[in-house]
Design a binder for these strands. Structure first.
Lengths: 218, 218
DNA sequence: CCTTGGCCTACACATTCGTGTAGCATACTT
DNA sequence: AAGTATGCTACACGAATGTGTAGGCCAAGG
């Protein structure tokens, strides 16, 4: 999250304060007056710049979408971006805006944000699939969707994960531990291919035939 | 989620309505009057039974904890509980209370609920570890924590996952697709052991030595 | 019969919040 | 220099909400 060139302006300060308070308190509990106070302006100015509280949130969403686009390009062109970075980015995601993003995602908002995560994951899966012995039964997009959701899980459940691990996962030690756990989980299947086949055959619908209206790659 | 013997009573109806409205609208947007109306009682009765709005939410949390305990015992004693059920339970989790649980978890509440998920996952890992070639570097609890978080991801990001998959993941077709994706992801490592070792050596802290104050099993 | 206590309702109060309006200062334009 | 747009504040209003209070209905027990 590199700082925007537009800074110091009251409008930007209001947006940042809103991002923070919406995240910490939630949209309803965060009042316009509190946001204005945190930004060092009057409450009237918030209305002057953004029109309404919901419009202010829309602007926050849009700002985050732009920020993600920058980060997206950055990751795509970064040669050191490999696999785990995908998870690392998702985890430390949006730094101070983590809580805001979490709430937005839970409420079904911030769709472009989630979609970008899926797309990033799908691109990574292209490389992963090359080293895979058996052809995947399911589309890359489908697997990337669930993978993106799982990658976001630690960021969403930040408090609980930190509590159970006994370490703040945003601290250097916590991030290190998290990276090792991620490597372990991603490098060790928890179900053997045989078991997977057996369980697949037990699924109620269809007996594991690879094509019956499911989402498949072309 | 089996229905409680205590039912039909106004108190139970209020609690159920609160669970639903807190989930759908969020704690702040859901008003006591709306909850009372949904339960078919007056708003005063809500206060009479629960004292305050926050106390009502506490009761909702406690009720969910009790319900989870029942489900916990059920899963533990069910012989057909194998691996994927872990994910399936987390996904279709709490049925109508999914949104409530999601909000509670995001806000850092419902800790016993998350802890139960971790414990369940850790028990499963005991079996998984038996079939693992290399000894795990990290504690079972640590891996179970992240695993639990990832298992909850689809439930938390229900709307986005359903949207990207093009199927309601709570519908029979969606659940089937989800199960297949889960089997695929769990049975195929996305990182080879060699890559994992290489990436582990690249981590800033320590050069991959297996013990330097990390969380380890005994 | 009367009274006691648990459910339950109706109504009022104080607070808070989003929004609307009026007005001031500064800077830029013509 | 006058006009005008812009960034900003102060203040007020209406609505909604959590909470408090007074009272009614009804079964149980003396």
């Amino acid at each position: 999250m590199s700082p925007d060139p537009e800074d110091l302006t009251a409008r930007a300060r209001i947006r940042d304060a809103a991002l923070r308070l919406f995240g910490e308190e939630g949209f309803d509990r965060a009042t316009i007056r509190d946001i204005a106070h945190a930004a060092g302006v009057s409450s009237g100015l918030v209305r002057h710049h953004f029109g309404s509280k919901e419009a202010l949130r829309d602007e926050c969403d849009a700002y985050l979408a732009r920020a993600l686009e920058r980060l997206n390009d950055q990751v795509r062109t970064d040669p050191s971006a490999e696999g785990v970075n995908y998870v690392a980015v998702a985890t430390s995601m949006f730094g101070p805006y983590r809580k805001y993003v979490a709430r937005a995602l839970i409420e079904g908002r911030a769709a472009p944000l989630f979609d970008t995560m899926v797309d990033l994951g799908a691109e990574w899966l292209v490389e992963v699939d090359k080293q895979r012995p058996d052809p995947p039964e399911l589309s890359r997009e489908a697997r990337a969707t669930v993978g993106a959701a799982q990658s976001l899980a630690v960021a969403l459940l930040y408090e609980h994960v930190s509590r159970r691990l006994g370490v703040d996962v945003l601290s250097p030690e916590g991030a290190d531990l998290l990276a090792r756990i991620g490597l372990d989980l991603h490098s060790h299947p928890t179900i053997s291919p045989d078991e997977a086949a057996a369980l697949r055959n037990r699924l109620p619908k269809g007996a594991g035939s690879p094509d019956e209206g499911k989402v498949l790659d072309d």
